[in-house]
């Protein structure tokens, strides 16, 4: 009961602040039209309200977050459907399906001899819709099979170059860069970033790292003995990478927060 009362008081306070902000922001609008000022005042206040509602999720789940979330999901779904309608249906499908429809939507009709083929995906699409009819719903598997089959076929060969062949191929790197004998190497040893030592070290780390990483991914062999050592090195290399990527990402995330706080303090409170 008390928490419910507290919630009500909180909501009342939020509503008051909202109104207050709306009035102030409308009053400080720059447009000549009162309507525009009142509208913009509302929009910025609402945006602030939503921003704070989302942040309140950090404390814990609450009605404000739920409201912002529901609104967001609804707008997104609606936006996505409109976008899909205009770009795919009107932009892609109508110009090839029918002349009269094209005229209706003011898109140029594409006359093509092979436009008859467009009925194949339409049939598959209609079959997909049989899902909504319980008795023949299993028919929809045909369309799903088409999608899964093409995806599998596309992936069977297409990513081999970028994900496998190029990667293997690029691992064949010179392990003794500019090698002129051990004496020369020791004489010129330095920690300069573009020096021979660093170049050789880096290439060895890549070479050994790739090998050990591959060993780590072996499924049919126990990680014991030499194999275990190699896979252990593999994990280390992976962990260095993950740690580094994580640490490197922190900055980007803080920037996003800076953006939001700047919005709150600058655009809303005008104290920056």
């Amino acid at each position: 009961m008390t928490s419910k009362t507290a919630m009500r008081i909180l909501m009342a306070i939020v509503a008051l602040i909202f109104l207050f902000s709306w009035i102030i922001k409308s009053g400080s609008g720059v447009s000549d039209s009162t309507f525009t000022n009142v509208r913009d005042g509302f929009l910025i206040t609402f945006a602030v309200f939503l921003t704070l509602s989302i942040f309140s999720f950090l404390y814990h789940d609450n009605p404000f977050y739920k409201f912002a979330e529901s609104l967001y999901v609804g707008i997104s779904a609606g936006y996505w459907m409109c976008y899909g309608f205009w770009s795919t249906v009107v932009g892609n499908f109508v110009p090839r399906a029918s002349r009269s429809l094209s005229e209706f939507f003011h898109v140029p009709y594409q006359e093509r001899a092979d436009h008859i083929l467009i009925y194949i995906p339409i049939i598959f699409g209609l079959i997909l819709l049989t899902r909504l009819l319980p008795r023949i719903g299993w028919l929809s598997r045909w369309s799903l099979a088409f999608i899964i089959g093409t995806t599998a076929g596309l992936n069977l060969t297409r990513y081999l170059r970028s994900d496998f062949i190029s990667q293997v191929s690029n691992s064949f790197i010179p392990l003794f860069v500019d090698w002129k004998g051990a004496g020369d190497f020791i004489n010129h040893i330095s920690l300069a970033a573009d020096g021979q030592f660093i170049a050789i070290l880096s290439n060895w780390v890549i070479f050994v790292g790739v090998m050990c990483g591959l060993v780590y991914f072996f499924f049919s062999k126990e990680h014991k003995g030499t194999f275990g050592v190699a896979s252990r090195i593999g994990i280390w290399i992976l962990m260095i990478t993950f740690g580094a990527s994580f640490g490197y990402t922190v900055m980007g995330r803080i920037s996003l927060l800076v953006g939001r706080i700047t919005f709150l303090f600058g655009d809303w409170l005008n104290i920056l």
């Binding site: 992936n155 293997v168 780390v205 790292g209 290399i237 260095i240 990478t241 580094a244």
Partner: peptide
């Protein structure tokens, strides 16, 4: 670290991903 071990790890993972993807397909 972002350049070298990262590259090694990325390659090892990608080679695995390539194989796994082909196997799944």
């Amino acid at each position: 670290m972002l350049l070298v071990p990262n590259l090694a790890a990325k390659r090892a993972i990608l080679i695995g991903v390539g194989l796994g993807g082909v196997a799944t397909a």
